[in-house]
């Protein structure tokens, strides 16, 4: 600021010389900026390419003809493109059925998660500060619990309850909102909404249920969308739970189905990777949808983060995050 003001003060004195002296300088500055931007584009593009390469290789490998020994030279399709792999795989394993199973489990899991996580987050947001703080601490503690520490006892509990080989065992975590992160996401979103709104609704005689359904939930659409996508893909991707809790092959989900395919024929790479592409596609589509609907991740996460960190202070005091170059 001081620099610009000094500049404007001095400007009248050098009015005649200024354009001639500054134009070349300005031009090199612009060129340098353009060069830097180009360098950034190249760097960012190569980083993105590095991360996309494995996926590209996956698709390429899934289209190689089956039965021939894989090529030992680099090249995209040295032996031609075999689209038939994608129909063949439905013939050799019951993939359609497994996809249906996964879809069912993931949908139920995501729907129940939406209810339980938003209930918990909604209630937490309205608790008195000491209780609230303890509940947040509990949620964070749960977040840090390694899942492998509970596989065995959960197996024993589920078999005592007769839940082995049922989908109930798979979607059981939805009871606690699947991951306490989802509860926290709702909690942070509801804290952002003015709590006086809930208070006013209560004084108007609206019950907690009505207030949750008609006031709170409609205000946090982006969070709901994010929780739905994240929890759906959690259950879609889950491998260990179906591995441990499912016994009969007709109940298998895609994750264990792919493992089955891998064990059937270890060397049949094209078909195995075609299966992987099919499993991955819905997840990628959902995340793309989320990306488009939230119009960019950074804004959403920044708000979540700011409210998560600063709590009440951040809502009132913090300036909007300025982006610097």
């Amino acid at each position: 600021m001081t620099m610009t003001s000094r500049h404007t003060v001095e400007a009248p004195a050098s009015v005649l010389t200024a354009p001639a002296a500054e134009r070349p300088h300005k031009r090199t500055g612009a060129w340098r900026r353009r060069g830097r931007r180009l360098l950034w584009q190249m760097l960012a593009l190569s980083v993105a390419a590095l991360f996309l390469t494995p996926l590209l290789w996956m698709v390429v490998a899934s289209l190689q003809p089956v039965g021939l020994p894989p090529a030992r030279t680099l090249g995209w399709f040295p032996q031609g493109v075999a689209w038939s792999n994608y129909s063949e795989i439905f013939r050799i394993i019951p993939l359609a059925r497994q996809l249906g199973n996964s879809l069912w489990v993931s949908s139920v899991g995501a729907a129940v998660t939406l209810l339980t996580a938003s209930w918990a987050g909604f209630a937490m947001a309205q608790m008195a500060p000491p209780v609230r703080r303890r509940l947040v601490a509990l949620a964070l503690l749960l977040l840090l619990t390694p899942a492998s520490a509970v596989w065995l006892p959960r197996y024993l509990l589920f078999s005592a309850a007769g839940l082995i080989d049922t989908y109930t065992a798979l979607v059981a975590p939805a009871l606690m909102g699947t991951k306490s992160l989802f509860v926290l996401m709702y909690y942070w979103s509801f804290r952002r909404v003015s709590l006086e709104l809930f208070e006013a609704a209560r004084l108007e005689g609206a019950g907690v249920w009505a207030s949750w359904r008609h006031i709170a939930l409609p205000l946090v659409g982006p969070t709901t969308l994010a929780v739905l996508v994240l929890s759906f893909s959690h259950y879609w991707s889950d491998f260990v739970d179906p591995l441990l809790f499912l016994k009969s092959a007709q109940r298998f989900t895609v994750a264990v189905g792919l493992r089955m395919l891998q064990q059937m024929d270890v060397t049949n790479w094209p078909l195995l990777l075609a299966g992987v592409v099919i499993m991955v596609a819905p997840v990628l589509l959902l995340y793309a949808l989320l990306q488009v609907m939230l119009r960019g991740d950074a804004h959403f996460w920044r708000r979540t983060l700011r409210n998560g960190v600063g709590g009440e202070n951040a809502q009132e005091g913090s300036p909007p995050a300025e982006l610097s170059g």
């Binding site: 209810l115 339980t116 996580a117 209930w119 918990a120 909604f122 209630a123 937490m124 509940l135 509990l138 749960l142 619990t145 520490a149 509970v150 065995l152 006892p153 959960r154 509990l157 059981a172 975590p173 009871l175 606690m176 909102g177 306490s180 509860v183 907690v208 949750w212």
Partner: peptide, 16 residues
């Protein structure tokens, strides 16, 4: 409203 979360946390993490 908090019951499912707390019950789930107890049954699926605390108790195990």
């Amino acid at each position: 409203l908090l019951t499912p979360f707390l019950a789930g946390a107890f049954l699926l993490i605390g108790l195990p």
